[in-house]
Simulated assay, not measured.
Amino acid sequence: MAGAALVAACVASILIGSHPLTLDQAVAAFTDFRGTDTDRIVRYIRLPRTVAGLLAGLALALAGAVMQGLTRNPLAGPGLLGINSGASLAIVVAMGGLGLTSPTGFIWFAFLGAAVAAGFVYVLGSLGFGGATPVKLALAGAAFTALCGSITTAITLLDRTTFDNFRFWVVGSLTRANVESLWGIAPFIVVGGVLTLVVSRSLNAIAIGDDLARTLGTRLIAVRAGGALSVVLLAGSAVAIAGPIAFIGLVIPHIARAFAGHDYRWVLLWCAVLGPTLLLLADILGRVVAQPQEIQVGIITAFAGSPFFLYLVRNRKVATL
């Protein structure tokens, strides 16, 4: 059923928009391309946008699930813990300092920013009594996000060109993707996804505590290093494709657990399907609610994800992963 929903979301993403299409028109754009406006819309606008949603949704959902597993923190996610903000700041520096505008050009900056953010937030959240508790990590992530946001704003306000390139991307958008850049970023997402599958069994052991995980033969340092690398690759790639989209990495793992239980091998598989589905549906909603204008997908996910986040904070039962 989830797979069918993903296929339906992909088809709807191709057909629905300010220029509605029929299924026959969409198929003809691939089988009998004649260069008409409809053909160009399908091939050069709707298809890259749909693929961007698939890749970004997959990456964010998997990254969020791995982060929650590694930290045993139900509030962990690329957006909440500052990883998206760190990657965004690094990309802004690349835009303003080096003039890079293509996702394949600044993706290495996204990886660097995501890695620095992950390390900084975890170290800051680990200080003091009790170590890296969920609340301390969330507060550290909020503080780091605010810091990155202020620096990002300063850079964009001082450079009009950077601001023009950044203002649509920063809210989270699938509209700037093109086939060439997606081909260049996809291998990083594949590597990150494979790493999540490699560490998935060990995440089940970590969920019961570090001491018990060691007795089961889990190599904690190796698992955490592999998991952290996968998060950096996945979150950095997603930000490079679509900007800092919020709440997908936080919400989807919890929805996946409702279907799959607490076995991370199944949770990750469900995330790989539910993440792209939810992101594409949010993008479609943004196209139709304010026609003929569009609301960018990052605004839709933030609006829909905020109530869920408040539910997680207030519901203590969710704290058990």
Rank of each mutant, 00 (worst) to 15 (best):
D283R: 03
G130V: 05
Y44D: 15
V267Y: 00
L75N: 01
I245H: 04
G105R: 07
N315H: 13
A225I: 15
F188T: 00
V190C: 08
P276Q: 09
G226W: 03
G82E: 07
F144A: 05
V66A: 09
M1K: 10
T36C: 06
V42H: 01
P103I: 03
A61P: 07
H254I: 12
S181E: 13
T196L: 09
T133Q: 10
A4R: 06
D283F: 04
L62H: 06
L229V: 15
V51R: 00
L75D: 01
E294I: 06
T320R: 14
L285F: 14
D164K: 11
D263V: 05
A256M: 10
L54V: 12
T196G: 04
P78Q: 05
A228S: 15
Y122K: 05
I299P: 02
A260E: 02
F247M: 07
A256H: 06
L212A: 13
R167T: 11
I241G: 02
L312Q: 07
G35Q: 05
F120N: 00
C148G: 04
A52I: 12
V92D: 02
A225K: 03
I295L: 14
T301W: 01
V11P: 02
V27Q: 10
A242C: 12
Y311P: 04
N178Y: 06
A61F: 08
A56V: 08
F33G: 03
G149E: 08
G82K: 06
P134I: 12
I299E: 07
A29R: 01
V194I: 15
W183R: 15
I83R: 00
L212S: 13
M67W: 04
S202W: 08
N178P: 04
A242R: 01
F30I: 12
G226S: 11
I284A: 07
R72S: 12
T133C: 06
G236R: 02
T145D: 01
L174G: 01
F30C: 08
D24P: 00
W169G: 01
Y264M: 13
F33N: 15
A319K: 09
R49S: 08
V297D: 01
F120C: 11
T145A: 15
Y264E: 06
P253C: 09
G131I: 08
I45F: 13
V42Q: 01
I221T: 15
L81S: 00
A177G: 07
V51W: 04
A246D: 05
S181Y: 07
V27A: 14
A28L: 11
N178G: 12
V51T: 08
A5K: 03
G69T: 10
G227W: 03
D210P: 05
G305Y: 05
W108L: 15
G3S: 10
L15A: 14
L281S: 09
V267H: 00
T133I: 09
L220G: 02
L312R: 09
L280P: 00
L310N: 07
I185V: 15
V289A: 07
I14A: 13
